[in-house]
Simulated scan of single mutants.
Amino acid sequence: MHGFDELLAGRPLVAILRGVPVARALELARAVWGSGLGVVEVPIQTGEAFECLRELARAAGEVGAVVGAGTVRSAAQVAAAVEAGARFTVAPGLDLDVVRASHDAGLPHLPGVATASEVHHALNAGCSWLKAFPAGSLGAGWLREMRGPFPEARFVATGGIDAGNARDYLAAGAGALGVGGAVTRDGGLAALLEVLADG
């Protein structure tokens, strides 16, 4: 199992392609992979999303990239994500059954956390990378404050992030940024990649 330390090494972007048609998703994913700055996540809430995940997983395999399944809320969804070719799973919250199912399947899991208790339980469950969600509501300061009691935790700040505030979250200690809406808007991905390329 490749963990997030490896998957996100030098790749500070998790591009979240929610509800994006397959052709557009492939275009965006190839831009992300081609930049060398990120990985791609497809939230799997619909049948169309599963088909998108399968297509992106196939394309990722051709270029040595990876794609993960997002909004994974049950062990059954973990199994479906594995079948579709996902290489990691992401959830909006912390569900220990989902953590266990992902790890048993050989996939690293990124659980959503928004409190110190959730951070604590996620770390104890074997997740060293955590999704700070919703980051836009939590604020960059939340990341700084969590680094005190939990210096071993690595965070993917997700929700409400775009090219305008990306640097704030990275400066606060985010190891990566999960970005959805800003990535799928016209010009949004290019603007974000420019910010990330500048460090």
Results as ranks from 00 to 15, higher is better:
Leu189Lys: 11
Ala125Lys: 12
Arg18Ile: 11
Ala101Lys: 04
Ala84Leu: 09
Leu8Asp: 00
Leu56Thr: 10
Trp142Glu: 03
Ala114Asp: 03
Leu193Gln: 04
Gly10Ser: 03
Val32Cys: 11
Glu6Trp: 05
Gly160Ser: 14
Thr71Trp: 14
Leu177Lys: 12
Asp198Gly: 14
Leu143Glu: 01
Leu107Tyr: 06
Gly61Leu: 04
Thr115Cys: 13
Ala163Ser: 15
Gly139Tyr: 11
Ala23Asn: 14
Ala25Pro: 07
Gly47Tyr: 01
Met1Lys: 07
Leu8Gly: 00
Pro111Arg: 04
Ala91Asp: 10
Gly61Asn: 10
Arg24Val: 13
Val63Leu: 11
Gly70Glu: 09
Gly139Cys: 11
Ala157Gly: 11
Gly85Leu: 13
Phe50Asp: 11
Ser117Leu: 14
Arg147Ile: 00
Thr158Glu: 04
Gln45Gly: 09
Pro134Gly: 06
His121Met: 15
Cys127Lys: 01
Glu118Ser: 01
Ala80Gly: 13
Ala9His: 14
Leu107Ala: 03
Ala157Thr: 05
Gly178Pro: 06
Gln45Val: 15
Gly160Val: 07
Asp198Ser: 15
Glu118Val: 07
Cys52Glu: 10
Ala81Leu: 09
Ala15Lys: 09
Ala75Val: 12
Ala105His: 09
Thr115His: 11
Val67Ala: 06
Arg11Leu: 00
Phe88Thr: 06
Gly112Pro: 10
Arg18Gly: 08
Glu27Leu: 11
Ala31Val: 06
Gly148Leu: 14
Lys131Glu: 06
Gly19Arg: 15
Gly3Val: 08
